[in-house]
Design a protein around this nucleic acid. Structure first.
Lengths: 245, 245
DNA sequence: CAGTGGTCTAGACCACAGT
DNA sequence: CTGTGGTCTAGACCACTGG
């Protein structure tokens, strides 16, 4: 599915809905929450119900099959598929700390509208000078300073974010807008703390730190760019790479 | 009309080839190796070439679009897509450097049979004292020291490894035995170099380094455990996390 | 303007499940 | 047997792109 299709659908919501989209969304509502293995309506039943051609119904069902929501069994019917893969959600700092049995706290040092600099603009697919939200937080785990995070958000995607009161978890906030990142491009390297960082993190200046940059994407949209500096003595990144886990 | 049906059956009995599969594979051969952005044949051109209905051609092209091989642009045509996903293979140091346009070199500092210590034994799913192969290498990129790697292999899985002459690439060697890791559990943190590490890496002692530990698995078997220390000023880890890239 | 992909129709025959 | 999905036809109109 291309960006163009998404645009089509958005235009359509303000006008007449495409038939295959109508059918698809009808089936989706029937299917979401249903137990794996439950039967979906048969293609010919949907043909009758919507008064459309069978190819149109198939186009609708095809999309759901590709999504992994449905499974076709020739000669038997179409059924709710069991989830293929664990939804590899990106974990937020809050979730990450919880997984380690630590209580995450967050202190906002900065939350304001800014003009995107060259680096942030490129990472967010914006033009230099475009409006971005800059959110700097000092994050603690069990009261100990753990990292200093600068997050940049595309203001166009998150209107009224600053006015709505800052949430505890950025990812939860994005989630409620349907913009939780599903994948990301990360880079990780080691460095020494700057004086400002050292002060915030309660480190000697020049002490070792771990730098983690993230470009978080929801679909094709870059929703978050962040740069985080961790105390090297308190934080280790764990991750699983590759498939077939 | 019945003529058409007869022709269909003849084709089917001859090659067992469905029409949309024929079209799909024809387009695939045209497309593999072509530069991203190259145009694929138009749908109507394929209709003429194969004498099939347009829906059949679309079914063929749909499959390639879902695969990520093709990209449709309404009003313009269908084009070779640029690869979406990161390679699911784990990349070796050699491949990693090649991707950055650097020449990887490797100097073996140690290659011998040892008894597994407690940490290595646990990571390799062995018992302390079991035989392991310990391979320590200093790795350079374009002549500059880049990292120091200690790899431990389960000797039972790789008999005669030390006698067969050390290969250039560990992953290639494992690959030839069908033991190339397909996934891994990694941990990454920042630290300062020990004196020995600093000497090898041509760093001042206490300089910042990136430590990367890996448990590489092929299926359910742990085939490799490694600990690598990188010069912080020369190495950054890049990775893509999550799905739907 | 001509060409492209996006959508849609109203049928058809097939192989295969289950009864 | 009936019903299912899998395949396929021969058209059609639309919105969009490019020259």
């Amino acid at each position: 599915m291309s960006t163009v299709q998404v645009v089509n659908e958005m235009l359509v919501t303000e006008g007449r809905a495409l038939k295959h989209v109508q059918v698809r969304e009808y089936v989706r509502t029937l299917v979401t929450g249903a137990a794996p293995g439950s039967p979906a309506p048969s293609e010919r039943e949907l043909v009758h119900r919507f008064g459309v051609a069978r190819m149109t119904v198939r186009q609708a069902m095809d999309a759901l099959v590709v999504e992994g929501l449905l499974e076709r069994i020739p000669g038997r019917g179409t059924f709710v598929a069991r989830p293929r893969r664990a939804p590899s959600r990106l974990t937020s700092f809050t979730e990450e700390m919880a997984r380690r049995g630590l209580l995450a706290e967050s202190q906002t040092l900065l939350a304001r509208r800014e003009q995107a600099g060259p680096g942030v603009a490129r990472a967010l697919n914006l033009t230099e000078g475009d409006a971005v939200i800059h959110w700097r937080r000092l994050r603690r785990a069990d009261g100990q300073p753990m990292c200093l995070e600068d997050a940049y958000l595309n203001e166009v995607l998150i209107p009224g974010f600053l006015q709505s009161g800052m949430p505890t978890s950025l990812y939860d906030a994005l989630d409620s807008r349907g913009l939780r990142p599903t994948w990301a491009e990360d880079s990780i390297n080691a460095d020494v703390a700057s004086e400002e960082e050292a002060q915030h993190l309660d480190l000697p200046a020049g002490g070792p730190v771990l730098r983690h940059s993230r470009r978080g994407l929801a679909g094709e949209k870059v929703v978050e760019v962040s740069r985080t500096v961790y105390r090297a003595d308190r934080y280790t990144i764990w991750l699983q790479v590759g498939a077939e886990g």
